[in-house]
Computed example of a mutant assay.
Amino acid sequence: MNYSISPDALHDKVILVTGAGDGIGKQAALSYAQHGATVVLLGRTVKKLEQTYDEIEAQGFPQPAIIPLDMKGASKQNYFDMADTIGSQFGRLDGVLHNASLLGVLSPFNQISEDTFDDVMQVNVKAQFLMTQALLPLLHKSTAASLIFTSSTVGHSGRAFWGTYSMSKFATEGMMQILADELSDSNIRVNAINPGGTRTAMRAKAYPAEDTDLLNTPLDIMPLYLYLMSNQSQGVSGQCIDAQSR
Rank of each mutant, 00 (worst) to 15 (best):
R92S: 15
S75C: 12
I112R: 05
K76N: 08
S186R: 13
L102K: 14
D181G: 01
E173V: 09
G104L: 11
T116K: 10
L136F: 05
M131G: 13
I67S: 08
Q63P: 00
L135T: 00
N78W: 00
A160W: 00
G155I: 04
Y79C: 15
D118E: 15
S166C: 12
Y53Q: 12
E114L: 15
P108R: 02
I86V: 11
Y53E: 14
F80M: 09
I148Y: 01
Q133A: 09
D181C: 08
M175Q: 15
K126F: 07
K141S: 09
V105I: 05
S107Y: 00
S101V: 10
N78I: 02
I67T: 04
I188A: 07
L69E: 04
T143F: 06
I56N: 10
S142H: 08
L102Q: 14
L69R: 07
F117N: 06
V154R: 04
A171T: 00
K72N: 14
S113M: 13
Q128Y: 10
D94Q: 05
S152Q: 07
T132M: 10
D54T: 13
W162R: 08
F80W: 09
G163L: 04
Q59G: 06
D119N: 14
Q133E: 06
S113Q: 15
H156F: 12
E57Q: 13
D119F: 00
N78H: 11
